[in-house]
Design a protein around this nucleic acid. Structure first.
Length: 296
DNA sequence: AGTAGCTGTGATATGCATCC
DNA sequence: GGATGCATATCACAGCTACT
């Protein structure tokens, strides 16, 4: 039994129980069906299933137990939902890529360059042990990568990309992992400083963080169709629905108005209107006018 | 150097017995 | 009825040898 087959079985078990608490017989039947799709045997004995539950508990922090009153297995606690969902997602993605060769006509992977995740391990080592690093970084607008010595603080995910947060002087800067050409861990250490990074980025849309800007209360109105997407994929953690009817969905956000946020808002075109603040509305009007001028 | 085939070892799955 | 412990079976893989 390969690790991949076990992990696939864990994923099937968790997803099934997550959707609907069910009996061992139900899970066995599902594994039987999945075996046909997968082309290898996924069904296991009751004993192995029990051991799987232990593994799932330690791997994903998902506690599945038998409910004798309802005669079903169900999830009784999930310590860190975000983390376990991400672990499951990561495995589903891994599995899909793994089998994509055999399903080339139905699994269409995006052709894209590496996200720089190969740097994770080395960077984490430097962050944990407070080592300075010599970073060779390729800016979008420069031909050659330049080298800088920086104090790495954290890795941050933002809008599907990964960034290295560093301290340069008193400022926290971010570097896209996909633009890191190379880095070496310096023998010199830096003095760790207590910076509350989650708070620092609390009112940011993405990775751009102009601290001189104060967070603004923003109200947006979406068409009801677009509103459905916005409700399922919120723009920001501060997003709150303030009103909803057949014609529109109104949401409130609290964040710093940055270029990336304005660009994101422009992608909604005529499906969205800025209600507040006035200066954000003006900025969008100005941008759309400029865009229109390109065609006149 | 590359690879096919063999073997030993550790990891994993299983069935049975027993407990609660 | 499900959960658990234990002995055994099975599998994957690294390391080795022999061959091309």
């Amino acid at each position: 039994m390969s690790k991949r087959v076990s992990l696939l079985r864990f994923s099937i078990i968790i997803n099934k129980i997550k959707q609907n608490p069910c009996s061992f017989a139900d899970i066995h039947a599902l594994l039987e069906r999945e075996s046909e799709l997968e082309g290898s045997k996924l069904t296991v004995s009751k004993r192995t299933f029990n051991r799987d539950l232990d593994e799932i508990r330690s791997l994903y922090d998902i506690d599945i137990q038998y409910d004798s009153a309802l005669r079903v297995y169900r999830i009784v606690s999930q310590d860190n939902i975000d983390l376990s969902n991400r672990l499951l997602e990561a495995f589903d993605l891994y599995h899909t890529i793994k089998i994509s060769d055999n399903y080339a006509e139905v699994i269409l992977l995006e052709k894209r360059k590496s996200q720089g995740t190969e740097h994770f391990y080395g960077l984490l080592h430097a962050i944990k042990n407070h080592f300075l690093i010599d970073l060779y970084y390729q800016k979008f607008w420069e031909e050659e990568p330049n080298m800088r010595v920086i104090a790495p603080l954290a890795l941050k995910e933002s809008r599907g990309r990964w960034y290295l947060l560093c301290k340069e002087g008193d400022i926290v800067k971010s570097f896209g992992l996909d633009r890191i050409k190379n880095f070496t861990i310096n023998i010199e250490k830096f003095k760790p400083t207590a910076i509350d990074l989650p708070s620092l980025f609390k009112h940011c849309f993405g990775i751009i963080n102009p601290l001189e800007e104060t967070p603004e209360n923003i109200v947006l109105s979406f068409t009801s169709d677009q509103g459905k997407y916005i409700k399922s994929y919120p723009l920001h953690e501060s997003q709150q629905v303030i009103s909803e009817n057949k014609k529109e969905l109104r949401i409130a956000l609290k964040l710093r108005i940055t270029h990336d946020f304005i660009m994101e808002l422009m992608t909604f075109g005529s499906e969205m209107k800025v209600i507040e603040p006035q200066k954000l509305q003006n900025k969008l009007i100005q941008n759309f006018k400029k865009a229109l001028e390109l065609y006149q």
